[in-house]
Design a protein around this nucleic acid. Structure first.
Length: 589
RNA sequence: CGGGCUGUAGCGCAGCUUGGUUAGCGCGCCUGACUGGGGGUCAGGAGGUCGGAGGUUCGAAUCCUCUCAGCCCGACCA
């Protein structure tokens, strides 16, 4: 495929657009890959569309090779489908909805579990039709509260989403086997795209389910935080990351190492937030206890953390073995909680179902915490002295309920230390279980004529994120340095002041490259060399060929890799160029 | 949704505090000439509802009110 610059649209920008912060966003705009229409909405211009297609084609090939079958579902779906699984509520404002002329409410699909489950439920009745693994490459819509970083978090984006259906979890044809196949296929896809990535354990979020891995491209601008043990045997995202065992005790050591001061109430008005209170009292937040009021079906739940730690709601749910949410502030206030000044001791006056204390908060020392009275805190709070026997009852439980932070012990309990890194999530695989089949009544008859809920998995990849992540991790001051497989073109030919004979030589060169199956962009603009080289560097195709009087005098072109230094440019005879390009770029298309 | 910032030519910005010629600058763009290996030089030129609406005023890019949009931080988030 030969494309002449003069015949396509590559609106490169000389200056950085002011709205772009991260390198990938900046460079995608500057190199004419994309253009913004509105917040979170991007046009893929010809160059960007080509790269996206290359990533998509790799995905398609590997999905097909792994036994998944392509199909295509509508982006628009009746809202009732969502209501069935309660996800209209779970997705909330993130769901784009619209009303059609008949007054029916519809949603622009943020994902397609419901649609495909509906489709399969209608046509699959026997276990003998399973397992099935189907995928599509479709546009998704999410009304993100804050679109940003270009195509990394946009409101409309292309996604490859696959869904698998099984009668069993184990054994041949089971969910686990397909999950593993998909996992391996994903590794091949990201390898082929030239990405450096890691897999981390993940929570499955509103999609629900039992196990999940994210494929992350580690880079400082990534939106997600992941933790890796420095022993290299554990990696998880922040929602999932467990923390290794930590010693705890409510009782002062014997003999006491710290003198127990009396409980002392201090007036702390107009100090919203732990940090301000800590600063006012001239202590650090890790000397404070924070008590979060949560609600559950069984009643109030207090979550107690060290002041500098953050609650992990998922962990709290696990610890409570029930649904838990942060309490509605007004409801908590009405119940008598001095919101913002709550201490664990409030359990002595207000009945709570459970107090869950993080091990780092269950330490026998003098704490600063709320006084259960608006505008007051207490100093020298001691668990045993303040709560007494309440600590020994069923109400109190000590459990890991906070987000990990850098330096925490690894859950492998092998002396490893968790280190925080940032990453871009380019793919995600889930074991869904029966959440959707249950909600939508998707059952099949097994060999014993017994009705069985279908077990599902789902597997997503964001091709746009592949491009952005590739750029994020492969660029320099001059522009993008594409991994060859997803470069818009493998070869970028720069022409310099060609006379008639030169033009002929160019035509021959292009014909040779084309015959070899190499994608070529020819910068045939009547520009001076400077701007052409700058644009070539900006766009970042792996191989640059320069053809001009200088090289043609040697019956050659100048050959230079984008990733190599300028001085590495060398002259290659015209008839040897195609082979050299194939050799370097790994076989063209 | 809370906090902050910004909307003036395709891109980047000045002008606004203190209202007053025809709204400027750089880059890009068009024409021509000279050039020709890392954004060259010269000459000439095109391009603007100053985000929108309302108001104050003899007069508004500039002051006031409302509104829309975009960006950043946070909350949120497969």
């Amino acid at each position: 495929m030969i494309t002449r610059w003069s015949q396509t649209l590559i609106p490169t920008l000389r200056q950085d657009p002011s709205e772009a912060e991260v390198p990938s966003h900046r460079l995608m705009l500057r190199s004419g890959l994309i253009r913004q229409l509105a917040a979170g909405l991007y046009t893929y211009l010809p160059l960007g569309w080509r790269s996206l297609h290359k990533a998509i084609e790799i995905i398609r090939q590997e999905m097909n090779a792994a036994g998944s079958v392509e199909m295509f579902m509508p982006a628009l779906e009746p809202i009732e489908l969502f209501a069935g699984t309660g996800r209209d509520v779970a997705y909330g404002d993130d769901l784009f909805t619209l009303t059609d002329r008949r007054g029916h409410r519809n949603a622009l699909a943020p994902t397609h579990e419901e649609v495909i489950t509906e489709a399969l439920a209608a046509s699959v009745e026997s276990h003998r039709q399973l397992p099935l693994n189907l995928y599509q490459i479709q546009t998704k819509f999410r009304d993100e509260p804050r679109p940003r970083f270009g195509v990394l978090r946009s409101r409309e984006f292309i996604m490859k989403d696959a869904y698998s259906f099984h009668v069993t979890v184990d054994g041949p044809g089971g969910l686990d086997a397909t999950y593993e196949r998909m996992y391996q296929a994903y590794c091949r896809i990201f390898d082929r795209c030239g990405l450096t990535y890691e897999t981390v354990e993940a929570e499955s979020g509103p999609i629900g389910g039992s196990a999940s891995h994210e494929f992350m491209v580690i880079c400082s601008t990534g939106e997600d935080t992941v933790y890796k043990s420095d022993k290299g045997n554990y990696a998880a995202n922040v929602e999932k990351c467990e923390i290794g065992p930590r010693a705890w005790s409510f009782d002062p050591p014997d003999p006491p190492t710290e003198s127990a001061g009396d409980l002392e109430t201090v007036h702390t008005p107009d100090l919203p937030g732990i940090d301000l209170v800590a600063a006012f009292l001239k202590i650090t937040p890790d000397r404070m206890l924070k008590t979060l009021v949560c609600s559950s079906d069984n009643g109030w739940i207090l979550a107690v953390l060290r002041g500098d730690h953050d609650l992990n709601l998922g962990k709290l749910k696990t610890a409570c073995e029930s649904a838990v949410q942060l309490a509605d502030e007004k409801a908590a206030r009405d119940a008598g909680f001095a919101v913002g000044f709550v201490s664990p001791a409030v359990a002595k006056t207000i009945t709570v179902a459970r107090i869950v204390i993080d091990p780092d908060a269950a330490q026998s020392r003098d704490w600063v915490t709320g006084a259960d009275r608006i505008d007051y805190h207490v100093r020298n709070f001691q668990w045993r002295r303040e709560l007494g026997e309440l600590l020994d009852g069923d109400t109190v439980r000590v459990a890991d309920i906070r987000n990990a932070i850098d330096g925490d012990p690894s859950p492998r309990d092998d002396g490893g230390v968790l280190r925080a890194e940032r990453g871009i999530e380019v793919g995600h695989v889930f074991k869904l279980g029966t959440k959707y089949s249950e909600a939508m009544g998707f059952t099949v008859l097994d060999e014993n004529q017994k009705s069985r809920l279908v077990i599902m998995g789902c597997y997503g990849i964001g091709p746009g994120r592949i491009l952005a992540a590739a750029i994020e991790t492969n660029h320099d001051d001059d522009g993008i340095i594409w991994p060859a497989p997803i470069a818009p073109y493998t070869v970028h030919v720069v022409t310099i002041k060609l006379d008639e004979a030169g033009s002929k030589a160019l035509d021959t060169l292009l014909a040779n490259l084309d015959a070899a199956g190499i994608d070529v962009l020819v910068d045939d603009r009547p520009e001076r060399p400077g701007p052409k080289f700058k644009d070539a560097d900006l766009i970042g195709c792996p191989i640059r060929l320069t053809i001009g009087a200088k090289s043609l005098a040697e019956n050659a072109v100048e050959f230079k890799l984008r990733c190599a230094a300028r001085e590495s440019a060398e002259l290659i005879k015209l008839d040897a160029v195609a082979d050299r390009c194939l050799e370097v770029a790994g076989g063209g298309r």
